[in-house]
Amino acid sequence: MDSIYTNPDHELLRDQVAKFIAREVEPHADKWEEAGMVPRDVLRRMGSAGLFGLMYEGAYGGAEADAMTNLVFAEALSQSTYAGFIITVLVHTDMASPHLHHAGSPAQKDKYLRKVIAGELITAVGITEPGAGSDVAGIRTTARRDGDDWVLNGTKMFITNGVHADLYFVAAKSGPGKREVSMFIVEKGTPGFTVGRALKKSGWLSSDTAELIFDNVRIPAANLLGEEGKGFYSVMKNFQTERIALAAMAVGHCQRALELTLQYVKQREAFGSTLWDKQTIRQRIAMLDAKTRAARQFMYHCAWRVTQGHDIVQDVSLLKALTGELVNEVVQACQQFHGGMGYMRETPIERLWRDARVLAIGGGATEVMLEEAAKRY
């Protein structure tokens, strides 16, 4: 489907991503699902291909592209039926490393950003805790200044890339104020910083997800990321990039599920004709396609508004709520049209079905998103 917002360069990027997925992902990703992680050499090849720094500075190897280009990348990536691979990449490109891009000092960028863009350092972001997810002001991990160092204590939960990341951007309370949160750079191997456990999930099986423990983790003052006490606002700002990327995942899953289902119903026979010959099925698929196309245009409109410098919090909150629910509606219906085969682990539609569920939860649950939108009417 073409969009009025895209151009020939975007289509070249879409084609590049599709070829990478066909060559490097689809033939191998079943093994990644079993292993619970995406091999780091695959991610390095993505970095070498120039896919990890689309919006970042050219001086560090980035492409200095805009939000629209980044959306095209996320949507193209989401044509894969392996969402664990997709989220591994998007956390690195759209949810974790943007904190370094937006708030990093020249010295911090010189030290890390080139390797992040090249895929030599894979990143994770530590915000969610056992008792705080979308409520960032409710986090309990603390950061205490001690001479030339900061000392971190606390626990993070549900951290994507948490097991195998090299670099973590961690939110911690750095003062008594409710929103007095700061962001810190923590390298893997720092004394006192450990992966508590790798978490087992219903879906996103090739995504490594972890509990992180900070036990008197001492880091140099130079690892403060951005201004002290301003991390809450940095997190809120980056949520918009994150939620557009998750919407792209949802729309991509809808598109792929419909494509797979059309192929299936046109050849599957029942009661003397194909499923496609049944009017009810044809019409339901057409309506699901209509909803997907409408959501896709809203998504592109949100990205366009980013490029124009507009306040997009309400729009993106609505987009996240809409697409998180829509992908579950579309994928579940498509699974239904596959009958018993749609419940078998070896089928892409079954994988899409279990992977889609979390898109109404992660990155801001539907109910939270609707409240964020409602507060702005």
Results as ranks from 00 to 15, higher is better:
D2Y: 13
S3P: 05
I4W: 09
P8I: 10
H10P: 07
L12V: 15
A18S: 11
A18M: 06
P27L: 10
H28T: 08
A29V: 09
A29Y: 09
M37T: 10
V38L: 01
D41N: 14
D41A: 11
R45N: 08
G50C: 09
F52T: 02
F52V: 03
M55F: 11
Y56L: 06
G58H: 12
A59N: 10
G61E: 10
E64L: 10
N70K: 12
L71S: 04
E75D: 14
A76K: 00
S78I: 03
T81S: 09
Y82D: 05
A83T: 11
G84Y: 07
F85V: 03
I86P: 00
V91W: 04
H92A: 09
T93K: 02
M95N: 06
L100H: 05
S105A: 06
P106L: 12
A107L: 07
K109A: 06
K111F: 05
Y112E: 00
V116Y: 04
I117M: 07
G119P: 11
E120I: 07
T123N: 02
G126D: 15
T128F: 10
G131C: 12
A132R: 08
S134L: 08
D135H: 14
D135C: 05
V136F: 09
G138I: 12
G138C: 01
T141K: 07
T141W: 05
T142P: 06
R144K: 14
R145K: 15
R145P: 04
D146F: 10
D148Q: 12
D149H: 15
N153F: 05
K156L: 10
M157I: 08
I159S: 06
N161K: 03
H164Q: 11
D166E: 09
F169W: 05
V170G: 00
A171N: 08
P176T: 14
G177R: 13
K178G: 00
R179L: 10
F184K: 01
V186M: 01
E187R: 09
F193Q: 01
T194F: 03
A198M: 14
A198Y: 09
L205P: 00
L205D: 04
S207K: 04
D208G: 00
A210V: 05
F214A: 00
D215E: 15
N216F: 07
R218S: 14
R218H: 10
R218Y: 02
P220R: 07
L225E: 03
G226R: 03
G226A: 13
K230P: 04
K230V: 10
F232W: 12
S234I: 13
F239P: 00
T241F: 09
M249Q: 14
G252L: 05
H253N: 12
L260Q: 00
L262P: 02
Y264Q: 08
V265R: 04
E269K: 15
L275V: 03
W276E: 08
W276N: 07
T280Y: 15
R284F: 07
D289Y: 13
T292D: 08
R293Y: 12
A294P: 05
Y300M: 10
H301F: 14
A303H: 03
Q308I: 02
I312V: 14
L318R: 14
A321C: 10
T323K: 04
V327P: 01
E329D: 15
Q335C: 06
Q335Y: 04
F337G: 01
G339S: 09
R345T: 09
T347K: 00
P348T: 01
E350T: 02
E350I: 00
A356K: 00
A356T: 01
L359F: 07
I361R: 02
M369T: 03
A373W: 11
K375S: 10
K375I: 12
R376S: 05
